[in-house]
Nucleic acid binder design. Structure first.
Lengths: 109, 109
DNA sequence: TTCTATAGTTCGGGAAATCGGAACTATTGA
DNA sequence: TCAATAGTTCCGATTTCCCGAACTATAGAA
């Protein structure tokens, strides 16, 4: 179990963010995590966002979000705490995440 | 040569837009088209945005942009005129495209 | 009309990314 | 030490992406 990789803020790339959020399941996971202040475990986020996703796939999704710089994952005991990096991303690309999240909300309704 | 498909504004999906623009070559093509008022041929857009892309690949890229609802392609004589659908997209997802384009500019510099 | 050139599209096969089940790892608590 | 829980990694099957070759559509010249 190699340590999880998180990019530095200045290494975050727009393409990676767009790619990560272009998948509905991942977008749902991310908005779920971004919506709550407290850290969320993988399964909790999945439960609140999308159901019946195999855990290997889920793990891959979290990896994509993580390596795009959208979330930070930290082990806390037996589980994994995921927090959004919205603040940092917004620092680098102001307005990008709000616009995407807003667009997704609009579409859902 | 079946007629080219363009989605209705109300059928445009955020995922499709994010996916289309998550590829650097496509993003460059799109910003190139969006930046100019007049319609651009495929090769002209490619020349101004990215070089040395095989034309079959280029054609696929245009197809992705078109089917995501980002551009409109119309045959005019022997060539193809591409225009951006920014206005329409912005109507449906206000602020989305500006935010993405701005983020890409920021990153480039 | 027929030939030729130009601008893209479509086809097809190899390369790369994605999905998901099974096995593995790390941590906690009994 | 054992069992349970939460994720990760491995790997084979499927899907998507890339790009050369062949094809289509249009314009202009002979």
């Amino acid at each position: 179990m190699r340590p999880l990789f998180h990019p530095q803020v200045e290494d975050i790339r727009v393409e990676a963010i767009l790619h990560a959020l272009s998948d509905p399941a991942r977008a749902a996971l991310f908005t779920q995590i971004a919506a709550t202040d407290c850290a969320q475990t993988c399964t909790a986020a999945a439960g609140g966002a999308c159901q019946a996703i195999p855990k290997s796939t889920l793990s891959q999704h979290f990896k994509v979000l993580r390596e795009a710089g959208l979330i930070r994952s930290e082990r806390q005991g037996v589980e994994m705490r995921n927090t959004s990096r919205c603040r940092e991303v917004n620092d680098r690309f102001p307005g990008l995440l709000p616009a995407i999240i807003d667009a997704q909300k609009r579409q859902a309704s």
